[in-house]
Each structure stands twice: as structure tokens, then as C-alpha cells.
């Protein structure tokens, strides 16, 4: 049960990352690599602020703002200085590695006695359950701490998803979606597509920063290495989500990304439980994304061959 609760919690936290990646990759159609650096940035900013005794929500918001700033820089590099999108992402990501070390002052900040963002909810829950420490769910004992974190992550993620959905349906959000689809058309409608892109990247990375902050609070530490490969995890989640809900409206896509992330975490947890070497996890994930990207195309060819739709004879 700990496993399930843990997977759900991490899954929900990382949903924020997936939603961020969804904004950059799917809505803006921008291959934003900054994410790997931003999630660590969010974690480190939050961790340092928490260690300094700031309120958890202050730390989380500050991490979000820091993430947004990173996205903003990537966007500016690409639009104002005409650096290719991948390269601008790589530049910012690389720079962030040093920035993160500077922020934390070392490569790892443990959060030992700090309050986390779930603390208020944990307090409320504790008064509700009899023994004040854990509640019993279908015969399992779940610590209040964990439950509170799960619920908080769910509330935050749901709120973000709902807000994002509302936002994307506004005039501004519609313009942002169109920017990704057809920048020329957006320009022809009198919208500055470059600013739109910068704004979108800031949003996307802000969410990633928030995910980093929550992750640090859940894990109890921030580590300069924690971001490596996060972009691929995000992509994997989105792909699973799309497989679950199909490529339809924005709302469903957001829900799909969340579901995909949680499912992906569960799969990972199960794989680890079955004895997958954690060191191989990233390789397996990369292979999965590769397969998900390539198989549809290859699969179509295969189907065509099997159906004999096209003959060269």
C-alpha cells in the first residue's frame, strides 16, 4: 500500500511537470530541454528557502517563479537572439546546473526538520483519526503524513490543471494554442507570436519549478542531479496519457497527462519491485519513449504491408 500511495503522490507531483512539458511540447510545439534544469532549480530554491525557515507555500511559489524565469530566458534566447530551440534549452539547462549549485551552496540539501506544504492538512487529518498518527484504509495503515501529502499534491495539481484548462479556453489561451500550431497565422491576426512563446515557456517552466518544489518537500531533499532525464519522463507520461484519452480536446489532454504520469509512476514502482535495477530505469524509459515515437509510424507500415494496401510489383 505504501507503494501505491507513494506512486500516486509522486505521480501527482510529477503531473505538474508533465503538464509543463505538455505546454511546451504539445501546445507550443517547442522542444524545451530547459525542464531538466528547471525542476532541480525549483527543488533547490524551495529547499533553501525552507531551510531558511520560510513558509512552505512561499518556498513553493518562489520555486515556481524561479522556474518561470528560466523558461523566460530560454524563450528570449530563442526569439530575440534567434538561437535554435534545442540549443537555447541546452544553454539554459547547462547554466542552471551551476545556478543550482550556487543556490544550494553544495550538491545536496536535506530537509530534516522543516515543515512541508502538506503540514496544515496533516494537522487537520491528525485530529480526525483516532490514533492521531495513521488512518486505516481497507485494512492498511497509512501514515497521516503520507495521506496529507497525497491529498495536497492532488489538490494542487487539480487546481493547476483546472486553471490551465480555463486559461487555454480564454482569448489569450486560444492565441497561445494557435501560436504553437501556426505562428504565421497568429502573426496575421495581430498577435506577437514571439511574446506568446516566451510567455508559454515561462508558464511551462513555472509549473516544472513548482513540481520540483513539491518533489523536494515530498522526498525530503533537493539534489543537483535530480533533474536528469525528467524531460523524458514527462514525455513518456504524455504519450501514455494520449494513449489513454486519445488526441482530442485540451481538457482531456491535460487529464490524460496527469493520468499518464501516475500510471507511469506505478509502472516504474512495479518494475523496481520486480527487481529492475534503478540504474537502468532511465534507459528503459528512453527506450519506451523511443518505441512510443517510432512504433506508430512503423506499425502503420506493418499494417499496410499486412493488408497489402500498396504493391510494388
Amino acid at each position: 500500500m505504501t507503494l501505491v500511495i507513494g506512486s500516486f503522490t509522486i505521480g501527482l507531483i510529477l503531473s505538474l511537470l508533465s503538464i509543463g512539458v505538455f505546454i511546451s511540447f504539445r501546445i507550443l510545439r517547442f522542444c524545451d530541454i530547459t525542464v531538466d534544469g528547471t525542476i532541480t532549480l525549483g527543488a533547490s530554491v524551495a529547499a533553501v528557502l525552507l531551510v531558511q525557515g520560510h513558509a512552505p507555500w512561499v518556498a513553493t511559489l518562489a520555486a515556481t517563479a524561479a522556474g518561470a524565469l528560466a523558461g523566460f530566458v530560454t524563450g528570449i534566447l530563442h526569439t530575440r537572439f534567434r538561437i535554435q530551440e534545442i540549443l537555447s534549452g541546452i544553454l539554459v539547462m547547462t547554466a542552471l546546473y551551476s545556478v543550482n549549485l550556487r543556490v544550494m551552496g553544495r550538491s545536496n540539501v536535506p530537509l530534516l526538520d522543516t515543515r512541508d506544504i502538506a503540514a496544515p492538512l496533516a494537522g487537520v487529518l491528525a485530529t480526525l483519526v483516532e490514533d492521531g498518527e495513521a488512518l486505516h484504509l481497507a485494512g492498511w495503515r497509512v501514515p497521516v503524513q503520507d495521506m496529507a501529502m497525497l491529498l495536497t499534491a492532488f489538490l494542487v495539481t487539480a487546481a493547476v490543471a483546472w486553471l490551465l484548462h480555463r486559461f487555454l479556453l480564454t482569448q489569450f489561451g486560444t492565441a497561445m494554442r494557435a501560436t504553437g500550431e501556426n505562428p504565421q497565422m497568429v502573426r496575421a491576426q495581430g498577435i506577437n507570436n514571439q511574446n506568446m512563446l516566451v510567455f508559454g515557456l515561462a508558464c511551462s517552466n513555472g509549473l516544472v519549478g513548482m513540481a520540483g518544489a513539491l518533489l523536494a518537500q515530498y522526498q525530503g531533499f533537493a539534489d543537483v542531479q535530480m533533474g536528469i532525464g525528467m524531460i523524458v519522463w514527462g514525455l513518456a507520461s504524455i504519450i501514455i496519457g494520449e494513449a489513454l484519452v486519445g488526441k482530442t480536446g485540451v481538457g482531456l489532454a491535460i487529464v490524460g497527462a496527469m493520468m499518464g504520469t501516475v500510471l507511469f509512476r506505478l509502472l516504474v514502482a512495479i518494475a523496481l519491485r520486480w527487481g529492475l535495477d534503478p540504474n537502468d530505469l532511465k534507459l528503459v524509459t528512453a527506450a519506451f519513449v523511443f518505441a512510443a515515437l517510432v512504433l506508430p509510424r512503423y506499425g502503420k507500415q506493418l499494417v499496410r504491408k499486412m493488408l497489402g494496401g500498396r504493391h510494388y510489383a
Binding site: Q171, T174, R177, A178, E181, M185, Q189
Partner: peptide
């Protein structure tokens, strides 16, 4: 036009051409 978006959403962008895109429902 933006292919993935609906007819209405595409037109909404044009309706506000040259004005600020606000935070009202499109």
C-alpha cells in the same frame, strides 16, 4: 488557419485582430 483548432476558435482570434487578447472565455 490553425488546423487542430475548431472553426470557432480560429475565427475568435480574427474577431479580436489588432486588439488585446484578454482573459475572457474565447
Amino acid at each position: 488557419t490553425a488546423a487542430g483548432m475548431s472553426i470557432a476558435e480560429n475565427i475568435v482570434l480574427a474577431m479580436r485582430r489588432g486588439q488585446r487578447q484578454g482573459l475572457r472565455r474565447a
